[in-house]
Measured scan of single mutants.
Amino acid sequence: MSIQHFRVALIPFFAAFCLPVFAHPETLVKVKDAEDQLGARVGYIELDLNSGKILESFRPEERFPMMSTFKVLLCGAVLSRVDAGQEQLGRRIHYSQNDLVEYSPVTEKHLTDGMTVRELCSAAITMSDNTAANLLLTTIGGPKELTAFLHNMGDHVTRLDRWEPELNEAIPNDERDTTMPAAMATTLRKLLTGELLTLASRQQLIDWMEADKVAGPLLRSALPAGWFIADKSGAGERGSRGIIAALGPDGKPSRIVVIYTTGSQATMDERNRQIAEIGASLIKHW
């Protein structure tokens, strides 16, 4: 067993022997301040990774656009098919120029040779490549099948209805392509620590998230040296922004954090800054 596999296998073990965790309302004060600064709703939840206990939450059962955070769930569904012998990570998928959609920095470079399922998941999570996500959605049967996968996990809230990039439209009061912070946090925890996926697939999923290259201005910008984070960000229309993450000190994750916002007129930089400040408060009061 590799060191990384050992780390993920012992996530519940280490967490069980940690000192009790206590909620700190100071972080919620910052979440509410972010709402004021952005002029928009902000949803927040913080779960203990081992027990699933909610440590703090704000608007945990209000719907927010998922945006690209759905790509972690998508690759979880792909990995479940791999575990069941219905898919192979090494299978190569070929596609054409007509398949390319807006923001496809990886797939646009491989029109000639195609990409493997493993490479597509890596591109979808680490670079948020939209064509990679659409190609992977095709392998599982489309958005409705991802929703069905989530329902089978016990998540009857999260739903995907459309493809990239239309799913980022974020129309107010439109339930399409949305989740709730509580539902997303619980589902992410199941994917990373539950028995739904094999140990190898859980490790692969967290490795992809740990290698995320496009979430630097968010929670990662607030992390002290030595902290662990595996995350996936999302951005959408109407001032929408979000991030889902597993993080913790001492090089291992111990909490799940989900943050979503929508309806702001603020710039992307300002949305990023507010999420980073929430992260800084979380870490300060850990």
Rank of each mutant, 00 (worst) to 15 (best):
Thr261Asn: 11
Val78Asp: 14
Ile283Thr: 12
Ser57Trp: 12
Arg59Lys: 05
Trp286Ile: 04
Gln97Thr: 14
Ala182Thr: 09
Ala183Glu: 07
Phe228Pro: 08
Val72Ile: 02
Ile171Ser: 03
Leu191Tyr: 11
Thr107Ile: 04
Leu219Gly: 07
Ile244Gln: 11
Leu55Tyr: 13
Val258Lys: 01
Val106Tyr: 10
Arg118Tyr: 04
Pro224Ala: 06
Lys32Val: 04
Leu111Pro: 04
Gly194Asn: 13
Glu270Asn: 15
Met67Tyr: 13
Leu160Gly: 03
Thr186Ile: 13
Ile275Ala: 12
Val106Phe: 13
Trp208Thr: 04
Arg81Ser: 12
Leu137His: 15
Ile45Thr: 00
Met67Val: 11
Ala222Leu: 12
Ser96Thr: 15
Ser51Trp: 01
Gln265Asn: 14
Ala123Ser: 15
Ile125Asn: 00
Ala132Thr: 05
Pro217Gly: 12
Arg241Pro: 04
Pro65Asp: 08
Ile275Val: 13
Ala246Lys: 01
Thr147Tyr: 05
Val31Glu: 14
Ile283Asp: 07
Ala235Asp: 02
Thr116Phe: 02
Gly141Leu: 04
Met115Gln: 13
Leu188Ala: 08
Pro105Ile: 14
Glu195Ala: 01
Asn173Tyr: 10
Tyr260Val: 05
Leu89Gln: 02
Trp227Tyr: 09
Gly39Thr: 07
Arg176Lys: 15
Ala133Pro: 06
Thr193Asn: 11
Lys284Val: 12
Ala225Thr: 11
Gly154Tyr: 13
Ala200Thr: 13
Arg118Phe: 14
Ala132Tyr: 07
Thr158Pro: 08
Asn50Met: 07
Ala280Tyr: 14
Leu205His: 07
Arg238Asp: 03
Leu146Met: 02
Cys121Gly: 01
Gly226Ala: 08
Arg63Leu: 11
Val72Glu: 00
Leu160Tyr: 07
Val29Gly: 06
Pro165Met: 06
Gly234Ser: 04
Thr107Trp: 15
Glu169Thr: 10
Val117Lys: 00
Ile275Glu: 15
Leu197Trp: 08
Ala280Arg: 09
Glu175Ser: 11
Pro165Glu: 00
Gly43Val: 01
Ser201His: 05
Arg241Cys: 04
Asn272Val: 00
Pro165Cys: 04
Leu160Pro: 05
Glu102Ala: 03
Ala148Glu: 14
Leu135Gln: 13
Gln97Ile: 11
Leu120Met: 01
Leu49Ser: 07
Ala230Ser: 12
Arg238Ser: 08
Arg41Ser: 13
Asp207Ser: 11
Ala34Asp: 12
His156Ile: 08
Leu282Tyr: 01
Ala280Lys: 15
Leu282Arg: 07
Asn272Met: 00
Cys75Arg: 02
Asn130Glu: 05
Asp113Ala: 00
Pro65Gly: 06
Thr179Asp: 03
Ala170Trp: 09
Asp177Leu: 09
Gly85Pro: 15
Val106Thr: 07
Gly141Asp: 15
Lys71Cys: 02
Asp161Arg: 04
Ile54Val: 09
Thr267Leu: 12
Leu247Val: 10
Leu137Cys: 15
Tyr103Glu: 15
Thr179Glu: 02
Trp208His: 15
Asn50Thr: 07
Ala225Met: 02
Ala124Asp: 14
Tyr44Gln: 01
Met67His: 12
Ala225His: 08
Met209Phe: 09
Gly242Cys: 12
His110Gln: 01
Gly85Thr: 15
Leu150Ser: 12
Asn130Val: 07
Ile275Cys: 14
Gly142Ser: 05
Ala280Trp: 08
Thr267Phe: 13
Arg255Pro: 02
Thr186Lys: 05
Asp48Gly: 09
Ser68Val: 00
Asp250Met: 02
Gly234Pro: 00
Thr178Ala: 08
Asp33Ala: 01
Met268Lys: 03
Gln274His: 12
Asp231Ser: 11
Lys144His: 05
Met153His: 10
Asp155Ile: 00
Ile278Val: 14
Leu38Gln: 05
Met180Cys: 05
Lys252Pro: 08
Ala230Pro: 02
Leu146Pro: 14
Ile256Lys: 05
Gly239His: 09
Arg81Cys: 10
Gly52His: 13
Met66Glu: 01
Ala266Glu: 11
Leu223Ile: 02
Thr261Cys: 07
Ala266Asp: 11
Ile243Val: 05
Val258Gln: 09
His24Ser: 06
Tyr44Pro: 01
Glu61Arg: 05
Ser221Trp: 06
Thr187Lys: 00
Asp250Ile: 02
Arg189Asp: 11
Ala235Asn: 03
Leu100Trp: 01
Met209Gln: 05
Met66Pro: 07
Lys53Trp: 05
Lys53His: 05
Val82Met: 01
Asp99Val: 14
Lys30Trp: 15
Leu55Ile: 15
His94Phe: 07
Glu35Gln: 10
Cys121His: 02
Leu188Thr: 12
Ile256Phe: 11
Asp161Pro: 06
Thr126Arg: 02
Ala280Pro: 06
Pro249Gly: 09
Asn272Gly: 00
Ala84His: 15
Ala182Pro: 08
Arg273Phe: 13
Thr198Trp: 07
Val42Phe: 03
Gly251Trp: 05
Glu210Arg: 13
Tyr260Trp: 02
Glu119His: 14
Thr27Lys: 05
Phe58Asn: 00
Cys121Val: 05
Val29Cys: 13
Thr262Trp: 07
Pro249Phe: 06
Glu277Tyr: 13
Gln88Val: 15
Gly216Ser: 07
Cys121Glu: 04
Glu270Ser: 13
Arg271His: 07
Asp231Leu: 12
Leu28Phe: 10
Ile259Met: 10
